[in-house]
């Protein structure tokens, strides 16, 4: 069809040819890399009398935090914690919050804990970053205590300072400080599939596998992004816009990166506390996505980068075959 259009004299945008690094279950994996950048991150452990209440708070605290572009921070649930893993012996959820600067992280930690955890019945908030890895310290209870209007109580327990803030169901207990670590945001890979159903199915397999990896979150809804973006826009006010090279509805209009047979693309973005955890998450995610091979409708795997100009952390897909 393209040849026919060309013969009529239409502008042909051409295609980007995929250079293959290897195959997983017969699915070609492009020889490229995911480009990630440095962020500031913290881990919060939220506990409640029941897991349901802890989860309510964690879900609220990590809501509207998919991308720093418009949300100011990126946040997600890292994992559920058993009663043996939490400081107070109650069911817990650990969440990770990422921002572009320490100042931003402080602001969002305070807001999200104040509006989503302090408000939630029975919950308590604890620092989840071990002392030995904390790069600096953020104020947690130290900032929220003023809600107590002078009735707040400070308590030093086991060498850690806690704040007890009177609330209508008793007290909100909150550790004074939360550790900040230098994290990484923007690890990613793209699943190129024959159609939407195959793409979603592969993405769900990948997310299920990646959720088991510690120190990472997948900040987008269900862990998956359909609106992959490129830097810049024809509109001056936008710093990012749709990644037209991977939009199946723009094939023929733009320089497409979609291989033959690709009808839908989904991206998985990973933020992590360290490079090793992101690499591990990408590894298990890509392998899970490729399970079933091309018969499952997955026609290729690639990753998003900006030519190495955006971030110092590069996760090369060829490492999957190392």
């Amino acid at each position: 069809m393209r040849a026919r259009a060309a013969s009529r004299g239409a502008r042909v945008p051409g295609t980007i040819v995929m250079k293959v690094a290897g195959e997983l279950d017969g699915v070609p994996v492009e020889d490229t890399f995911a480009e990630a950048f440095g962020m500031r991150a913290t881990r919060l452990v939220i506990t409640g009398e029941t897991r349901a209440w802890a989860r309510h708070a964690a879900v609220a605290a990590t809501g509207f935090a998919t991308s720093v572009i418009a949300c100011g921070c990126e946040a997600g649930i890292e994992r559920e914690l058993s009663v043996r893993e939490t400081p107070d012996g109650r069911p817990g959820i650990s969440i990770l919050i990422f921002a572009m600067s320490s100042k931003d992280l402080q602001k969002h930690l305070e807001r999200r804990t104040g509006q989503c955890v302090l408000t939630c019945p029975t919950t308590a908030a604890f620092n989840g970053v071990p002392n030995e890895v904390a790069h600096e310290w953020l104020q947690l209870g130290g900032a929220l205590r003023y809600f107590g209007d002078g009735w707040q109580i400070s308590k030093l327990i086991g060498g850690k300072r806690y704040w007890r803030i009177p609330v209508m169901d008793g007290e909100f207990v909150c550790e004074e400080k939360a550790g900040l670590v230098k994290g990484i945001g923007g690890g990613n890979f793209l699943i190129l599939a024959a159609d939407g159903a195959s793409a979603r199915s592969a993405a769900e397999r990948a997310v299920a596998a990646m959720r088991k990896v510690r120190n990472v979150i997948l900040p987008f809804p269900g862990g998956v992004v359909r609106s992959g973006s490129k830097v810049g826009s024809k509109y001056k006010t936008l710093i990012a816009s749709t990644n037209d090279a991977y939009c199946p509805t723009l094939v023929g209009l733009t320089r497409s990166a979609l291989p033959e047979g690709a009808g839908a693309v989904l991206e998985i973005v990973i933020d992590g506390l360290d490079a090793g955890s992101i690499a591990k998450a990408m590894d298990v995610g890509i392998r899970a996505a490729c399970r079933g091979g091309t018969g499952a409708g997955v026609v290729g795997i690639t990753a998003g980068n900006y030519g190495g100009k955006l971030g110092p952390h590069h996760f090369h897909l060829k490492e999957l075959f190392a």
């Binding site: 107070d88 007290e171 207990v173």
Partner: peptide
């Protein structure tokens, strides 16, 4: 009579 989390933590410590 209160069953306060902070006191539970304190007693455990």
């Amino acid at each position: 009579w209160h069953d306060l989390l902070a006191i539970r933590l304190l007693l455990e410590s």
